[in-house]
């Protein structure tokens, strides 16, 4: 049973990591807490579902939805965040909350309030043992998350673009003065950030066979716990924090019971860890 619970925790944790990665990337560069990233999660799920129904091909639906949502992210930063950058941080925060509510209600008006089933046929089968069952979607989620995270690591650490990202994250003005094309870095950042959220949305939609307008509610606040725990804007920290929270939640729910709502557990973990490490798991003391 412990193995079953651990695997389950890792699956949930991988999705958390992806959900929070979008917001981490945005925070890393712009220092804006992007709540609307949870809206991108719902947009991605709907786009994936509609594309899958239209084409019948999962890879096409997945890549198409990620690209679509990523481009939506680029639009959002051009139209909303960049013009607000010189305002106090509260202004873009409120703007992102407004955008999040707008996205949810727009989806409800366009697609209706009902839960839609996202039934995807995977080309392989799950593992069935007497005391352990790992279904195909879990395997797909762990594999996809791993691929996306390795891709992100490679981008950030082994490419010129990654170097530009890091310098922009350290100091936007200086990077600009040094000749880094900051506008492009920021746009690319949103493309990735919203794309990651979309990927998480599609996978959660498939995992629970349900896509609905308010599906972004949970990630909207849980990603806050995860990115703070991971050390605000630190991609690796976000992965560790996502996995940690996924596993802790699952173990607590399995062995202690839902004595607290599952979502409260994330914040209890956050409080405990911040008491010991105020800078977050992998954050640097400044």
């Amino acid at each position: 049973m412990i193995l079953q619970q651990l695997i389950n925790g890792i699956v949930i944790g991988s999705v958390y990591a992806l959900i929070a990665m979008g917001a981490t990337l945005v925070y890393g560069i712009l220092k804006v807490l992007d709540i609307a990233n949870a809206g991108a999660y719902a947009i991605g799920a709907y786009a994936g579902l509609f594309l899958y129904q239209a084409t019948g091909s999962l890879p096409v639906a997945f890549l198409g939805a990620v690209l679509f949502t990523g481009l939506f992210g680029v639009l959002v930063q051009r139209v909303l965040y960049v013009p607000l950058l010189d305002k106090p941080p509260l202004v873009p925060l409120i703007c992102s909350i407004g955008l999040f509510i707008f996205i949810q209600d727009l989806i409800r008006l366009l697609a209706g309030p009902h839960i839609r089933a996202f039934e995807a046929q995977l080309p392989f089968r799950g593992i069935e043992l007497p005391y352990l069952s790992v279904n195909a979607i879990w395997i797909a989620i762990m594999a996809t998350t791993a691929v996306l995270l390795v891709f992100l690591w490679y981008m950030l650490n082994r490419t010129k673009l990654g170097l530009a990202w890091k310098s922009t994250a350290q100091d936007l003005e200086i990077a600009k003065a040094m000749g880094v094309n900051v506008d492009r870095v920021v746009a690319f950042n949103f493309l990735l950030g919203y794309g990651f959220a979309a990927a998480a949305g599609i996978m959660i939609g498939m995992l629970y066979n349900s896509v609905f307008p308010t599906m972004g509610d949970m990630p909207a606040y849980k990603m806050l716990a995860i990115i703070v725990l991971g050390g605000l804007g630190n991609p690796l920290g976000t992965v560790v924090a996502g996995l940690l929270i996924g596993v802790v939640e699952t173990l607590v729910a399995g062995y202690v019971g839902f004595f607290l709502p599952r979502d409260a557990i994330a914040f209890v973990v956050l409080i405990v860890i911040l008491l010991v490490r105020p800078q977050g798991l992998l954050g640097q003391r400044t």
Partner: peptide
């Protein structure tokens, strides 16, 4: 007897417990 919050989506942990 177990309970869960409105909007909960993940029941595998508690169902694994019930199975035992």
């Amino acid at each position: 007897v177990d309970s869960f919050a409105f909007g909960e989506k993940e029941f595998t942990p508690v169902l694994a417990k019930i199975k035992q």
